[in-house]
Amino acid sequence: MGAQLCSKADTSAPLEALRFHAEAKGAQVHLDAHECTARRRATFHDGIVFSQRPVAPGERVALRMLQQEGGWCGGLRVGFTRLDPAHVSAPSLPPFMCPDLEQQSPTWAAVLPEGCARAGDVVRFWVNRRGQLFAKVNAGRQFLLRKGVRMGAPLWAVMDVYGTTKAIEILDPASSLFPTAAPWVPSEEAVQEPEATPGRECAICFHHTANACLVPCGHTDFCSYCAWRVFRDTAKCPMCRWQIKAVAPAWSRPALRTGEGS
């Protein structure tokens, strides 16, 4: 990773407003002049960004969803890391936060439930002293994204402007511009990510619902997570061996091609 872990927080200086770190960012990320807006220029990955300073337990990281882009599966990922972005070599960042950055470093992240945040919504996320990662959308109730964040050392916020998420803005938590209406209330199904119904299981993990379409062959036998892993690792459809050009939602399935893959 070409990164250095920080073992001691600077507690003498007052907390400054959160911004995105100017240098530690994915290859497709463009930041505005104030380092408050992160936009992914192209493709669906290489959108990792960090906060410029450590985030205290219980401190809310507030993001406004500025723009979304159709044609992809999956969206914003959020979490915390012990990687000090001041010592992260940007070219060494992997294309995906989940699972690549998690596997390469002490990073704990989660995917926001499908459809929970749309353009204009504000997402707040934080970690408590028990290592639980929570999130909240607009004025809705908080929901648990994951457990097991290791406490006891400085943690930086890390975000992945991924898939359908095209641009985000980091906000001052005291901002009066936060929306107060139209909260998103997650169902137990969205938070718990239950097993798929019989007959709709992903052909790779056999757990999540098959909801992704491989382009151009049109096979829809995989969940979006497994489809992206196959696309990244081999770019070959496991069913027909056609070369994968893109991954799309299952409802956008093209006409099925036949024959051997190239």
Rank of each mutant, 00 (worst) to 15 (best):
M97L: 12
G71C: 05
F80Q: 04
G131M: 05
C73N: 01
R150D: 15
R130Q: 11
F96N: 00
A117W: 03
M151I: 12
V123P: 01
R118A: 15
Y162S: 06
S187R: 15
R141K: 13
M159W: 01
T165E: 10
V127T: 10
K147W: 14
R118F: 13
L76K: 04
V191S: 02
A90F: 00
G75E: 01
T164H: 10
K136H: 14
S105E: 14
I168P: 02
V161C: 07
C73I: 00
A182H: 15
P95G: 03
M159T: 08
R118W: 13
V137G: 03
L155F: 10
P95S: 11
E189C: 08
E169R: 12
W184S: 07
V161N: 01
H87F: 11
P85Y: 04
D172V: 09
D172T: 08
L145D: 08
N138V: 06
L112T: 06
P94R: 01
K136W: 08
V88I: 14
P99I: 08
H87L: 05
V122T: 05
A139G: 09
P113G: 12
N138W: 05
R118K: 15
W72K: 07
N138K: 10
V111H: 09
N128L: 04
D172C: 07
Y162C: 06
G79N: 08
T107C: 08
Q103M: 13
K136V: 14
W184R: 07
R130M: 07
V191F: 07
F178K: 01
G120E: 15
L83K: 00
W156E: 05
G163D: 11
C98N: 11
P94S: 03
A135S: 10
V123D: 03
C98R: 03
R141A: 09
P95I: 04
V137F: 03
Q103T: 10
N138L: 11
A167G: 10
W108M: 11
R146G: 07
L144F: 09
M97W: 00
W108C: 08
A109W: 03
C98E: 13
F125K: 01
R146P: 02
A174D: 11
R77Y: 04
A157D: 02
C98L: 08
V111N: 14
F143M: 14
L101D: 01
S187L: 14
V111K: 06
E189T: 12
S176D: 10
V78F: 02
D121T: 14
W72Q: 05
G71I: 08
C73P: 00
P94G: 01
D172S: 07
F143W: 13
K166D: 12
S175Y: 07
R141M: 11
G163H: 12
C98F: 01
K147Q: 15
Q142L: 10
T107Y: 05
S176K: 04
S176M: 06
R77F: 02
A174L: 09
T81I: 13
C73K: 00
C73F: 01
